[in-house]
Each structure stands twice: as structure tokens, then as C-alpha cells.
Simulated assay, not measured.
Amino acid sequence: MLYVVGHKNPDTDSICSAIVLAYFLDGVPARLGGVNPETQFVLKRFGVMEPELIRSAEGKEIFLVDHSEKSQTLEDLEKGKLVGILDHHKIGITTSEPIIYLAKPVGSTATLIGELYFKNTLDIIGGKNKELKPDLAGLLLSAILSDTVLFKSPTTTDIDRKIGKKLAEISGIEDIQTYGMELLKAKSTVGKMAPEEIVKLDYKEFNFNGRKVGIGQVEVIDIGEIQEKKEKIYRILEEKLKEGYDLILFLITDIMKEGSEVLVVGNKEAFERAFNVNLEGKSIYLEGVMSRKKQVVPPLEKYYKEISNKK
């Protein structure tokens, strides 16, 4: 049986892309964690059930979406059969045999699925060009709006906008901006969540030249929603640092102001050099920084590669 699954601590793109791609691949949509409030809103809005929760790859064929980092996927991935990856992030995995691999620098994995559908080329990844039903089109549109932060993120491309418009027509969404704001409000419910939940909401682990780095992110309409919980979040991150991390960053991204306050735990020198800033205290506001993938991971990866080469 083929399982289509996104990364740990799944976001809307990870969940929705798994559901829609599984439909085209005649597979089973799966997830590696709980469904966040924004994704719950989307699934309820379009009347679609949550994917199956799986904890092991053993005995399964696996098709990964929205990630290729080993630290973000099933821990026993090698016990299953990895058949393909569809992603929009950097390459983070090596395989012992050929697989289907398609990645493109666009705003979301959902964009790639939409593009394959509209170009009638799903067959190149083993899929069937079945009819894209309104509910599934709505999932893809929601994933694009979520990952691109309503087309405000620097990861946004013309392809995202073009595919998003086509998906809106099929799904019956007449006003993308209005629906997008509903989506962002659903995303911004962290004020009601416990600090422990907030940390886990969208947390990813990376390996940069042998150094373990964690990067979490939460998107809010107003940073004030989370102001009183920042100190507790910081203490949670300090405890997490003991799990072998060199550095942990937690981005509190203000959607409206288009910037992020970054809590920094661990190797603060690495952060300062990677971003060319002076850190005074526990956090710093980075104007215009909204994308972990495009604006946070690359400078960190570059820094750790440079210090490794100097040894």
C-alpha cells in the first residue's frame, strides 16, 4: 500500500498536499502528527477528513511531500520503501536507489500538484489525471495561501499566483483575499494555546554539517497575542536545547507588519554571524523576515558550512 505523507509537526501544505496527491496516486493520505488549528479550519471548510496518523514506515511504500530532511520524516523510513518525493525545499536526503523526485522553488508543494494537474503531467510522478474536485482544489488553494502568507512571503512566485487563481475558480472561492484573511485568522489562534503547544506547532529540525539546529515558527496577526507567553516559550526552548542542539531559533512572525521577532537559544554567536546582527538579550526583531525556508535556513547553512571548512 502506498502512503503519501508530509513532515513531522505538519502544517496546512503538508496535510493538504498529502490528501490531494494521494488521490491522484491512488494512495492513502497520512500524517506524522496532530492537525493544527488552521488546517482543522480548512478541512472543516471543505468537508475533508484528516489523513491517517502513521508512526512507522515498516511494510509500506512511502511517497514524501513537502520535505526531504531525514530529521523531519519517519524515523524508520529505511524499513519501508521510499518511492518518491514532491517538495519545494532544498534537497535533504540521499537514497540508495533511484526514486521519483520532483522539486521546484515555488511557494508551496500544493502549487506543484496544481501545476502538474493543469499541465496534464501527473503521469511523470506516477499519478492519474483524475478530475480535480472543488473540495480538493480548495485544499490546494488553502495550502498555497498558508505557505505564501496570502502571497506576501518572499517565497511567492508568479506560478503560485497563477495556480492559486485557477484553483479558486474550481473551488468556488470568489474572493481570494477575503478567504485568505479568514485562513490567516484561523492560523492566528495561538493566543488561546499553551506555550508547549505553540512550540510544537511548526517546529523543524535540521542538520547543518553535523550541528543539530531547531527552527520553530508561529504566525500571528498581532505579536501582542503571544507577548505574555514568550518567557515560558523561551524556557521550554532552553530545556529542548539539552537534546543535543547547537542552536534553536523560534520565529514569531507578524503577518501584518511582515517581520519576525526571533527568540535565540544556544549558540548566539552563530546566529549573530549568520544574520550579521548584534543580539542584546534573548530576542531580536528582523524586519521583512517571514520565510524560514528562504530567509533563515540558507544563512545558517552557509555559516555552519564555513566554520566546518575552516577546521
Results as ranks from 00 to 15, higher is better:
Val20Asp: 04
Tyr23Asn: 05
Tyr23Val: 09
Pro29Tyr: 00
Val35Phe: 08
Pro37Trp: 11
Thr39Met: 08
Gln40Arg: 15
Gln40Glu: 15
Phe41Ala: 02
Phe41Glu: 04
Val42Leu: 03
Lys44Met: 08
Lys44Val: 00
Lys44Gly: 09
Arg45Phe: 12
Phe46Ile: 12
Phe46Ser: 07
Glu50His: 01
Leu53Glu: 13
Leu53Met: 14
Ile54Trp: 10
Ile54Ala: 08
Arg55Ser: 14
Ser56Ile: 06
Glu58Ile: 10
Glu58Met: 09
Gly59Thr: 07
Lys60Ile: 10
Phe63Arg: 03
Val65Arg: 07
Ser68Val: 01
Lys70Asn: 07
Ser71Gln: 10
Thr73Asp: 00
Glu75Met: 05
Glu78Arg: 13
Lys79Leu: 13
Gly80Glu: 05
Leu82Phe: 11
Val83His: 01
Gly84Glu: 03
Asp87Arg: 01
Asp87Thr: 02
His88Pro: 11
Lys90Ala: 15
Gly92Phe: 00
Gly92Asn: 00
Lys104Tyr: 15
Lys104Ala: 09
Pro105Arg: 06
Pro105His: 11
Val106Tyr: 06
Gly107Phe: 10
Ser108Cys: 09
Thr109Gly: 11
Gly114Ser: 06
Gly114Ile: 09
Leu116Asn: 02
Lys119Arg: 15
Lys119Asn: 15
Leu122Glu: 03
Ile125Thr: 02
Gly126Asn: 07
Gly126Ile: 09
Lys130Leu: 14
Glu131Thr: 14
Glu131Leu: 13
Glu131Cys: 01
Leu136Ser: 00
Ala137Gln: 12
Leu141Asp: 01
Ala143Gly: 15
Ile144Ala: 06
Leu145Arg: 12
Ser146Arg: 08
Ser146Ile: 08
Phe151Lys: 06
